[in-house]
Design a protein around this nucleic acid. Structure first.
Length: 369
DNA sequence: AAACCGGGGAG
DNA sequence: CTCCCAGGTTT
């Protein structure tokens, strides 16, 4: 018989399950999405929680449920409104996929989420993690979730040196999680492991003294906690130099909408471009704006700089005050344009960098000619 | 398998 | 500053 890569004693598994269940029952946080096991609410919360911390998600989740208390309201809403609710959460494809999935669920399944993993997996934006979360929490299906928290807990518990961020070894951690899963309480078990990872088995300075599975944890018992989990190095991120233009025509300035897909898809922003060469930014800005929008502008003055960090690159941007000169709008790249009063910026979903730029206008003497 | 896709909090 | 997060999709 082929020996399983993951081999844990059955007795040990049951003890770990019992300790975790007791700890979770006593210590679980009272989170908004835990007031019910309604699959719609579980789904929305899990989408928001992707790569995003609980404290960040809570106010977004509450605003979302105020506006879309039932799935049909979400399905009938327009994407622009959904993006506005999502503004600042990041990974905007999540909102796009979720909106699309809501429409599919309402059109094909009478507004009810599929109650199988296979059915859930067919929906846009629902992958292995979210399908397992909904299936286990809402439908009591024994599917183990594997997220960053779970992998860290497992790597420490079983002192496994497999890098937790190596996509090629995902299978190993899925095996551990499946073996350990409490078949009778899959939803509570999954949430217990994740909450343990979040609050006790933290990446740095884990609180092992409060850990309910301390006696089973191999790295604790051998005093090697600081050596786990093992992770592969990430490469350093490049710095991009950008130039942005606030182009005024009278009291209004030009706002552009990014293409629906890709980076910051569907969000609004100021005209701008990445500066690849060390040429004079003034003339280059004028030319790039013309290429993007069809209009000619005059660059008045540089009014400040902003910086922002993404996962894969950093941005250092100059911001220029500009004035419309001539020409009709003819978009090349952006999908829409709008002339707006600066105070109206809050009606449009924009990314973080844009919200760092607009406050610069407050101290400016005179914006219009 | 690897790249792409945001933003924020902790240390 | 660096690190990492209740991942999914695309290439």
């Amino acid at each position: 018989m082929k020996k399983s890569a993951v081999d844990i004693k059955k007795n040990t598994i049951q003890k770990i399950q019992k300790s975790l269940a007791r700890w979770y029952q006593k210590n679980r946080l009272d989170l908004p999405w835990r007031k019910t096991d309604d699959p719609y609410r579980v789904w929305i919360s899990e989408v928001m929680l992707q790569q995003t911390r609980i404290e960040t998600v809570i106010p977004y989740y509450n605003r979302f449920m105020d506006k879309y208390p039932e799935i049909k309201f979400l399905a009938e809403s327009d994407l622009q409104s959904v993006l506005k609710i999502w503004e600042g959460l990041g990974y905007y494809a999540r909102a796009r996929n979720m909106h699309k999935a809501a429409q599919i669920i309402c059109e094909k399944f009478q507004g009810r989420l599929p109650d199988t993993r296979e059915g859930l997996l067919k929906l846009p934006g629902i992958g292995e993690y979210i399908s397992a979360a909904i299936a286990s929490i809402s439908f009591r299906i024994p599917a183990a979730v594997v997220d960053g928290n779970v992998k860290r807990v497992l790597a420490r518990l079983f002192m496994d040196s497999t890098p937790t961020n190596d996509t090629g070894r995902k299978n190993l951690f899925e095996s551990y999680a499946a073996k350990l899963l409490d078949q009778d309480q899959p939803g509570d078990f999954n949430q217990a492991v994740m909450e343990l990872g979040q609050r006790i088995c933290r990446p740095g300075n884990p609180i092992c003294s409060d850990c309910p599975v301390q006696e089973f944890c191999k790295v604790f018992q051998t005093n090697r906690i600081d050596q786990y989990p093992v992770r592969v190095d990430r490469k350093s991120v490049p710095l991009k130099k950008m130039n942005y233009a606030i182009v005024f025509q009278g009291k209004k300035c030009l706002l552009l909408r990014r293409p629906a897909k890709g980076l910051l898809g569907g969000l609004w922003e100021l005209p701008g471009y990445e500066q690849h060469h060390r040429t004079a930014p003034g003339k280059q800005l004028e030319n790039m704006i013309c290429r993007m929008t069809g209009i000619r502008i005059r660059v008045e003055e540089k009014i400040g700089t902003v910086s922002h960090a993404y996962t894969h690159f950093k941005v250092a941007a100059n911001v220029y005050l500009c004035f419309y000169k001539s020409g009709e709008i003819c978009l090349n790249g952006p999908t829409e344009h709008q002339w707006i009063l600066p105070a109206e910026i809050h009606h449009y979903p924009c990314h973080k960098l844009i919200h760092k730029i607009f406050p610069m206008l407050h101290g400016l003497a005179n914006q219009d000619e």
